[in-house]
């Protein structure tokens, strides 16, 4: 399907960046970039940020508002009208119907485990691809890139058969491995991009200090990846948290199902039974912990960045 030349000359960054100007290793960057003083063009920033922020907050406000309406209210009032009363029983319904309590634990387990595997394996794979010149590095990166091009409408059938042969059907481990695998290409791709921007003296200096390559990787490179690592972790996690089709395909027992399958039923009840409020309530229930997690993680990113910068 592709000629060998395609594989040899992969569509990925393959030229090492020119060496950055040597920097005194101890000085490094400031632990945290200071807040820039206000400049007139910041107005433009605020305007842009404000617009995007307003749109996303209104989306949540809308979802929340609808989750407080009855279905009749939802359909008979303009979509933007405020709900008549606080109607928390939609939440109770959603919790019961979508088996959120049961599915939630499954989702946490599956998403966390697959994200962890996907990120850890990607970091290890990205390092040699980004920082070590070897014969097939370009081709291998090309293979990972191809992983981003899954025509899942077709590959799902052979995937199902191989999962069956491996005894991984209807198993959370199977789903975890599939998710981790489908996170890998993106993670590797992004991390290679990040790692290439690090100055090459880092390794050289470590080598002079007598550190082996594995140790150099763990103690010098890894800490510098803070923000990049956090971003791919968040993105992988979200993907795994929201993924629906492979879960539907590979998990058959209700007690093993993740949340999107529960939400899916709520969505179908909305489509074929006008049960919108419950779906929106279910959405709010499942989104809130993720948002909270993200808020907390954001601090970690900042911390990670600071720590990385200090060590560098």
């Amino acid at each position: 399907m592709t000629s060998s030349t395609d594989m040899k000359a992969p569509a990925v960054p393959d030229v090492p960046p020119p060496p950055a100007p040597p920097r005194p290793p101890k000085k490094a960057r400031d632990s945290r970039r200071p807040r820039a003083p206000f400049r007139p063009y910041h107005l433009f920033f605020y305007l842009l940020l404000g617009a995007v922020a307003v749109s996303s907050i209104s989306a949540y406000a809308w979802v929340f508002n609808v989750s407080m309406k009855t279905n009749g209210e939802f359909i008979s009032t303009p979509p933007w009208q405020i709900a008549e009363t606080w109607r928390w029983d939609n939440y109770v319904n959603a919790w019961d119907r979508a088996h959120i309590g049961m599915f939630f634990g499954n989702s946490v387990l599956i998403s966390v485990a697959s994200t962890l595997i996907g990120v850890v394996l990607a970091v290890f794979a990205a390092y040699p691809l980004a920082r070590i010149a070897f014969r097939f590095s370009g081709a291998l990166l090309g293979v990972f890139l191809m992983g981003l091009m899954i025509p899942w409408m077709v590959t799902f059938a052979p995937l199902y058969l191989i999962m069956r042969d491996l005894g991984l059907l209807d198993s959370q481990l199977g789903l975890i491995l599939v998710y981790a695998t489908y996170n890998l290409p993106f993670n590797v791709f992004v991390l290679v991009g990040f790692m290439k921007t690090l100055p090459y003296e880092l390794e050289e200096a470590a080598a002079v200090d007598g550190a082996g390559p594995a140790r150099t990787f763990v103690s010098v490179i890894l800490p510098l990846l803070g923000p990049g690592l956090a971003s791919v972790a968040i993105i992988s996690f979200l993907q795994n948290w929201n993924e629906f089709f492979y879960a539907l395909l590979l998990i058959h027992s209700p007690e093993k199902m993740p949340l999107p399958l529960g939400l899916f039923q709520l969505g179908q009840a909305a489509d074929y039974g006008t049960n919108w409020s419950t779906m929106f309530a279910g959405m709010m229930i499942t989104v809130t912990p993720v948002l909270l997690g993200f808020a907390l993680l954001q601090k970690q990113i900042t911390k990670g960045l600071t720590a990385g910068a200090l060590k560098g």
């Binding site: 394996l121 191989i162 491996l166 491995l177 981790a180 695998t181 890998l184 290409p185």
Partner: peptide
Amino acid sequence: LAPALVLLAVFF
């Protein structure tokens, strides 16, 4: 590279 490639080979 091996662990990532093994997963990729089998599932993708």
